[in-house]
Write a protein that binds this DNA or RNA. Structure first.
Length: 888
DNA sequence: CTGTTCACG
DNA sequence: ACGTACGTGAACAGC
């Protein structure tokens, strides 16, 4: 196992300084029993824990400035002159800080004649050469000059626990220059805290402008005569010497005479005993407690697990009863469990572990009967994946007791990793590695040949599942989410597994035929575009297209992106009519999208075995509780435009004389909103079966009757309704329907007056989120919104909109999930041949023999209707046809 | 590996 | 004054 080497370099003085001033108001609260100030140590410690957790360094060092005088004073005697003396409350902490570092097992280092920067610069360069990934932590932006593709510079913000990470890209994005040009900038601007002046009257803005034009100070002065005469030019001429000197002062040395080797910086972790006594000395109670709980949790060296390798010969030694339940993990080499090779498994009961690479053994009577017996409780991670994997061996996983993946997702839907090791870590269980650590990733992904390594990893997964079972189930109980787990997500995982296994049939010939038609049209349009542009270029490149449209053809620039001109649909639509090329580009985009994503993309997934595509539904990904669909994504098959909609013609039933049947909830999200907001006006509209958008239009435009609503009014009202569901803002609404912000605000104000219950709901839910830190759906699905208290307007606003939207979107997701579970049961109970195939958020798609259609037409809407009882009726619409295209 | 664009609800 | 609608996945370009 080859873990990447990571070096963490900390600018000791600078971070301590930042920590000291960040906690300056609390200076008096941070005094130990013998009178020592501790605020800087405390802040430093907080930062240290965070950065270690985030970067997982293998090597560490904290650099300090040695004495006052360095080589820079020899070059410029005023260097750092006039700087206020370090306050004694801070300097008294420095020796203790070094003690803290010692307990952390981190080396402190200083070097006569050099500053901490130079030590860091030198070691970073050295480490890079040896293949390290380097993280630098400092409070001083000057160090961003050291950023490279292998070195990230984290600069502390306001406090010290939050940092801003500077990669070369980030420097470029923020300043428009490369890290190397930072020193040129400092040369021109100077540095007041280090007391060197730079060029008179040149500040950051001017410096950046000059550097973007010329690159470096040297080139700037080589080309000074190209500048128009100005005051600035005079200053530049006068201060030339100073500029070069300042640049030299700003340059961090990468050749300091450091005798340390990188090997000496290897980090072996904290010394708990030393750290405990240090914390006691400085009265850090909270850190002591943290340390205590960490050491307690650590299990007595359990890295090596006893297991038995199963073979055909010893399989009979397995217990017969498994009555206390089993835990089970089936390993596959790859993500797509419909296809990934089954490479091994582990089964455990009564604390004994049995492993094998031979998954055929799972078919043996002994194991198979246990997995298929609903009376034997099974604990695992990702029941759906396991269910599908076993189904490939014709083993039918019967029931699951504890599914770590599902439970973990319900406890916190935002932390949605699919890796057992990572999830376990989130719950403070650290005795299991992640798959990435053991198997590698990308091209290096490999199931280990070493049995010891592989089997040990599998066993440690089961240990994690067992260890987390009762604490996580307790948390579910505290959150009142047991029912959500037992009645909804756990049974749903099997429903989804069956849908995935069923798959939907694709008419491959038809799809290929469509492909060649699209291909011809693409070629035609492409040729026309090249003609109109006067040259060939890569039409798929927004960058190249931007050059043609906005530079060559001189069309007006409507919107810019981070990297250049925007060429998105909205922009192109505004350019329509100005040049014929625009229409053709839109046409090209449309067809090229269909071709690459839906023709070629889909063909890649058609199984040669059964002519079907088997998507995977991700049950534990979205923050709201919706499903998502991958490989292929069958939840975004085109429907809005006629060209794209044709793709639906290739989705066909599995048998002759069968049809595709589809039912969808109409306006489910608005109905959910009417329910949870108790808004009487909105509820009344749904109860009398009104066209909800027309109704909204009538009311916000103050009309007498529905007949007076024009199509345009309805369109605008519809946008307002959508906006409400999304957590409305005047800006967003204005953008969407192309009106002014003021008009949009007007609409919203009127809307809230007409639907006061909705207004109340919006206010209350945001309040609740502020108070509790989370919001919930009808079925107690929970989403945490940590940013809701942020001082950053953007983050906070986003969280507030999310607080409004999540209960609506999430409850709708809950409802259809209930319907799916009931539907599956109903199909079985009624002994129908019909198969549930797909879910598209508010829609369920089936295939069925023609003779069952009549029955389904009643049954499916009934089940969907009765999934939940709201204060307003639900409405379900159905249709059927020979292909998915022909439904509705 | 990130950003842009575009497909869906 | 700030500056975005909510939730997704795939293809592609260009580093």
């Amino acid at each position: 196992m080859n873990i990447k080497k990571k070096l963490l370099l900390i600018d000791g003085n600078s971070v301590a300084f930042r920590a000291f001033f960040a906690l300056h108001q609390s200076l008096d609260r941070f005094v130990s029993h013998n009178g020592l100030h501790t605020n800087a140590i405390y802040g430093f410690n907080t930062m240290l824990d965070r950065i270690i957790e985030n970067t997982n360094p293998t090597h560490t060092l904290v650099a300090f400035d040695a004495a006052k005088e360095t080589f820079r004073n020899a070059k410029y005697s005023n260097y750092k002159g006039g700087r206020a003396k370090t306050p004694s409350e801070l300097s008294e902490q420095l020796p203790y800080l070094k003690k803290l570092l010692e307990a952390y097992g981190i080396k402190s280092y200083e070097l006569i004649d050099y500053e901490a920067d130079d030590i860091i610069g030198t070691l970073a360069k050295k480490a890079e050469k040896e293949g390290f990934e380097v993280t630098i932590v400092t409070g001083d932006r000057d160090l961003t000059q050291l950023a490279t593709d292998r070195t990230t510079v984290s600069v502390t913000q306001k406090g010290v626990s939050e940092t801003e990470s500077y990669t070369p890209d980030h420097v470029l994005q923020k300043y428009g220059i490369t890290p190397g040009q930072i020193i040129d900038m400092k040369g021109l601007v100077g540095d007041s805290s280090d007391n060197y002046p730079g060029v008179a009257k040149v500040g950051e803005k001017t410096a950046l402008k000059l550097l973007k034009q010329f690159g470096t100070i040297e080139k700037l002065y080589d080309n000074l005569d190209k500048l128009k005469p100005s005051k600035m030019k005079e200053h530049l001429e006068e201060d030339q010497k100073i500029a070069f000197l300042c640049k030299d002062l700003a340059r961090i040395r990468k050749d300091a005479p450091i005798t340390l080797t990188l090997k000496e910086l290897e980090w072996k972790g904290r010394d708990t005993a030393k750290l405990t006594s240090f914390y006691e000395e400085v009265d850090f109670k909270s850190f002591l407690k943290k340390l205590d709980s960490k050491t307690k949790k650590k299990k007595p060296e359990s890295t090596k697990i006893d297991y038995t390798v199963l073979t055909e010969d010893n399989i009979n030694e397995l217990s017969l009863s498994f009555k206390n339940g089993i835990s089970f993990y089936l390993e596959m080499s790859g993500d797509n469990y419909h296809l990934a090779p089954l490479v091994g498994f582990v089964i455990a009961y009564d604390g004994k572990y049995f492993v094998s690479r031979n998954c055929e053994l799972l078919k043996s009577e002994k194991i198979c009967s246990a997995l298929e017996d609903p009376a034997i409780p099974i604990d695992l991670f990702d029941g759906k994946r396991t269910f599908v994997g076993l189904a490939r061996l014709n083993v039918k996983l019967s029931d699951v007791d504890f599914d770590l993946l599902l439970v973990s997702y319900l406890l916190n839907a935002s932390e949605n990793s699919n890796d057992l090791g990572k999830l376990a870590q989130l719950h403070d269980y650290t005795d299991v590695s992640t798959d990435e650590e053991v198997y590698g990733k990308g091209a290096k992904y490999l199931i280990p040949e070493d049995d010891q390594v592989f089997f040990n990893h599998l066993c440690s997964k089961l240990q994690a599942i067992t260890a987390l079972k009762s604490p996580l189930l307790n948390q579910l109980k505290e959150n009142k989410q047991e029912e959500l787990y037992i009645k909804m997500e756990r049974p749903l995982s099997f429903v989804l597994g069956n849908m995935e296994l069923a798959g939907i049939r694709v008419d491959q010939n038809r799809l290929e035929q469509m492909g060649s038609e699209f291909k011809e049209r693409i070629e035609e349009v492409k040729l026309e575009i090249y003609n109109e542009a006067g040259e060939k270029f890569n039409l798929n490149s927004p960058k190249q297209l931007g050059v043609i449209l906005f530079e060559k053809l001189k069309l007006p620039v409507i919107k810019k992106t981070k990297t250049g001109y925007s060429t998105a649909v909205g922009v192109l639509e505004q350019l329509r009519g100005m040049a014929p090329i625009v229409d053709n580009i839109l046409k090209y985009r449309q067809i090229a999208k269909i071709q690459s994503t839906y023709v070629e993309g889909l063909l890649k997934y058609v199984s040669p075995k059964d002519s079907k595509v088997h998507t995977r539904y991700t049950q534990t990904l979205t923050a709201t509780g919706r499903l998502s669909s991958v490989d292929p994504n069958l939840q975004n098959i085109p429907i809005r435009l006629p060209e794209g909609k044709k793709i639906r013609q290739v989705f066909v039933p599995r048998k002759e004389n069968w049809e595709i049947f589809s039912s969808d909830y109409s306006q489910i999200e608005l109905r959910v909103l009417a329910h949870i907001s108790h808004d009487e006006n909105m509820q009344a509209a749904f109860k009398r079966g009104a066209d909800i958008h027309a109704n909204t239009a009538m009311q916000i435009f103050g009309l007498e009757s529905a007949e007076q609503v024009t199509p345009n009014m309805r369109r605008q009202a519809k946008a307002v309704n959508f906006g409400i569901v999304y957590g409305i803002s005047d800006y967003g609404l204005a953008q969407n329907i192309g009106i002014s912000r003021k008009q949009a605000k007007d609409f919203i104000d009127r809307y809230f007056k007409i639907f006061p219950g909705v207004h109340q709901y919006m206010k209350k839910i945001v309040e609740k989120a502020h108070k509790t830190g989370y919001v919930e759906t009808l079925f107690k699905r929970r989403r945490y919104l940590p940013d809701i208290t942020s001082k950053n307007f953007n983050l906070r606003s986003f969280s507030e909109r999310t607080a409004m939207n999540t209960p609506i979107q999430g409850s709708a997701a809950d409802i259809i999930k209930v319907a799916m579970i009931n539907m599956q049961k109903m199909l079985k109970k009624e002994k129908l041949q019909a198969v549930m195939l797909l879910q598209v958020h508010d829609e369920l798609i089936f295939e069925a023999p023609q003779e069952e259609l009549k029955k389904l037409k009643k049954l499916v809407p009934n089940v969907m209707d009765e999934a939940v009882s709201l204060e307003v009726p639900l409405k379900v619409e159905s249709s059927s046809g020979k292909t998915w295209y022909d439904t509705k």
